[in-house]
Design a protein around this nucleic acid. Structure first.
Lengths: 220, 220
DNA sequence: AAAGTAACATACAGACATGTACGTATGTGA
DNA sequence: TCACATACGTACATGTCTGTATGTTACTTT
């Protein structure tokens, strides 16, 4: 007889990794849409094609699942947004590229995970809050540093303390991308405009065409 | 014996209004900090100095309480932010004044109510979601109209459709103010900068002193 | 001042979600 | 092929929250 599902006949480790990914993605969607408290593990498992038994076999409890989602989202963000933007030498260009890449990244339905959890756990002492802090804090320092660097070189005008400006930068970016909910193609342009305003930059020259990478667009 | 609390000896209507206000404010703080699902009515009543019995005497259920909070916050916002900003004749000046006033408004601890609920109920069919829609939708149309008006007069450069730009405007504003959590005095400047960027405006002239009205500052 | 009504407290029932114990199926190594 | 480990499903025990029913206190009216 054929195996239960297509391509399921694999090694144990592979099987485990497969279901773990499915559960993580389902949990990410659920967290983004409903938040932590409203997240029903039965629905998370159900939408992934499993039951709560499988979920509790992979994750110790709800907290640990949420922490794993945070780490997973953080990794994909660094791979698709943070890393490529950091590659730019010019700090100003790096900051603008980050905003554009983030807008594209947010076209997926897992964009709200970080913002939702940050709001839900802000000011609380909770393992999930610490996981968020571990993923967000380095960004503030890294990009706050680049803001300071750009100001020293005169590429950016003076302004509030770099770390505060960086906080405003990321808050702005999250706010504008969530409000637009990934409505291409204007999301990229508006995101860049918003952060340019926070940084004290004039509007971008309208000549350069807004490049819109395939944010979960239709296949081939 | 003396009455239970100071100045409690009042008429029934006054007594009712008093506890209703206390419950609303407590619920607003709770919603802002923990969201709807995490909001425990026992804690809401307790922090207001009552029990759940009083709460259920004033509000039919949790939904209605949340709706009342939304209306209450909406009213105070219109009184302190939306109304004064609308009074400006020049659309651009009105849009910038709105951003500054909103930043000041958000120095209170009830600032996150709208954003939290919007995220928690986005894309759901729920009475609270409809209450939010009723309070937010008119803003998008009103201020989208002023954006269109400013573009026609040349005060604003062309951009995405006015309603989409207005969505981005408010999302940006909420994001930047929440990120700064009302940290005066830079919140006002950064909020205005962010929305100027969304609108395609150049940075504000640094000459004019940033006016910071008393956002819950210590009394004289 | 006493009856009556509104405001509020307390006690209880139902729903729902988490976490655990245990059973079953599937893959792995001797 | 047989013993074992891992992946997953099912059933239950526990706690927490909402909503309701009932009792008690504060005010109003006559």
């Amino acid at each position: 007889m054929a195996t239960s599902r297509s391509g399921d006949r694999r090694t144990q480790a592979d099987r485990r990794a497969r279901t773990r990914s499915a559960l993580l993605e389902s949990a990410a969607r659920g967290l983004s849409a409903h938040g932590y408290a409203n997240l029903s593990l039965e629905r998370v498992a159900g939408e992934a094609g499993y039951t709560r038994g499988a979920l509790y076999h992979q994750f110790a409890n709800k907290e640990e699942l949420a922490q794993a989602v945070v780490e997973w989202v953080g990794e994909t963000w660094r791979a698709e947004v943070g890393g490529p933007a950091s590659a730019h030498q010019d700090p100003v260009e790096a900051l603008c590229a980050l905003a554009r890449a983030h807008a594209v990244y947010c076209r997926r339905d897992i964009a709200g995970v970080m913002m939702t959890l940050q709001i839900e756990f802000s000011g609380r002492d909770h393992p999930v809050a610490r996981a968020l802090e571990r993923n967000v804090r380095p960004l503030i320092t890294e990009w706050g540093g680049r803001i300071a660097q750009a100001r020293e070189s005169g590429a950016l005008p003076p302004g509030p303390p770099p770390e505060e400006t960086a906080s405003a930068y990321f808050g702005t970016l999250q706010g504008v991308t969530i409000a637009l909910a990934g409505r291409a193609p204007h999301d990229v342009r508006l995101a860049e405009g918003a952060v340019r305003g926070v940084l004290g930059l004039p509007p971008a020259a309208p000549g350069e065409p807004v490049l819109t990478p395939p944010g979960r667009g239709a296949a081939p």
